[in-house]
Design a protein around this nucleic acid. Sequence first.
DNA 1: GTCTATAATGAGATAGAC
DNA 2: GTCTATCTCATTATAGAC
Lengths: 207, 207
Amino acid sequence: MMGVAVRGREILAVAEQLFADRGFDGVSMQQIAEGAEVSKANIYHHFQSKEALYLAVLKHAFEDMKVLLNDLQQGDELSVDQLARFSAEHLRDLHAKSTVTRLILRELLDGDGSRGRLLAEQVFAEYFELLRNLLVQCQSRGEVRQDVDVDHMAAALVGLNVFLFQAWPAMKHLPDAAFDDQQTSGAKMFALLYRGLLPAGEEAAHA
Amino acid sequence: MMGVAVRGREILAVAEQLFADRGFDGVSMQQIAEGAEVSKANIYHHFQSKEALYLAVLKHAFEDMKVLLNDLQQGDELSVDQLARFSAEHLRDLHAKSTVTRLILRELLDGDGSRGRLLAEQVFAEYFELLRNLLVQCQSRGEVRQDVDVDHMAAALVGLNVFLFQAWPAMKHLPDAAFDDQQTSGAKMFALLYRGLLPAGEEAAHA
DNA sequence: GTCTATAATGAGATAGAC
DNA sequence: GTCTATCTCATTATAGAC
């Protein structure tokens, strides 16, 4: 994955497009080879198997976000700013790579569950770990509550954005609703998650 | 929708199954007629058009939740309990009607956007309005913060559950993650949304 | 007509030359 | 790194017997 050279990138790009259009089974190695203008055997030089190529396509989509998460953790911003930036960039990224985002979401809907495990272990795990680290750091500074595990915090952060990405085509048409644009709505929902539904100072009354 | 009689229900049930399996275009009225053991003309007696039948199938999935929302608003529970109950029931409902849930999510992914408007106006609008009313009531009692619009609150409540429903097949396989079962995770994420990421009492410092 | 044996196809994957 | 040629295997025709 690291040393994937010039032709490797070309193959990856073609495969991404084809997989996104027709799904894993809908694409043959021959078609990818023709699209990338290489031989089928050459693809196998770069990628162990069709499945490995597929996973590489999915993993590729998370590279930018991994870099961002590392940067955020190195920096010394307030937790709220780190998390807000992550949330905003994450939403932007979902759209920048919308073909792959759709591919993954469709995979989750169709899959028989065995694909789910593969996605989790081979694609999401590393990314999820980075997000978890960031949240642990925020907790250790005392800027994020410590009585909730970071796993659910991470899921909520990602989940709100994914929902926004997916449901927007319908949300934006809801009558009388205050949804202007996705970035703004994303920011509002992040703020909601950060500060809670509960009014400030009411914590003790319900805890 | 109200006066849909015996045969209407049967048609609805068959149509739901077929649409969920093969999508709108993948099913003919003839096939639905055969499945429900009625004539094609009889379907048109109950439903104006194929599209009307389709929308009826989708709307049908929200009936239970509408009843629950009305009940919650009539009752006199604390807001936190009303919302927690809605959230838990909503997640349960997504699973109880998982075929339709998947159908809608796939629709949102595939759609060219024109379907999105239809879904919003014909299917979600009424349901969304009820949820909004509940939240307004919670706000007016002062038990839910008033500086965030109810639209985004409603979206966040629904969104976390939808994400959980969809991503679970992968989430449950994330290594070292504390996701036990969906209902429990749903409750944890609701609690997070309700109380916020921010530790109690820190509001003033960042507001 | 139906059944079964046999080709023919097209998929993923490998070997070995250049 | 790239190619041609080949292998294995599953699916899909298609014979030709019954």
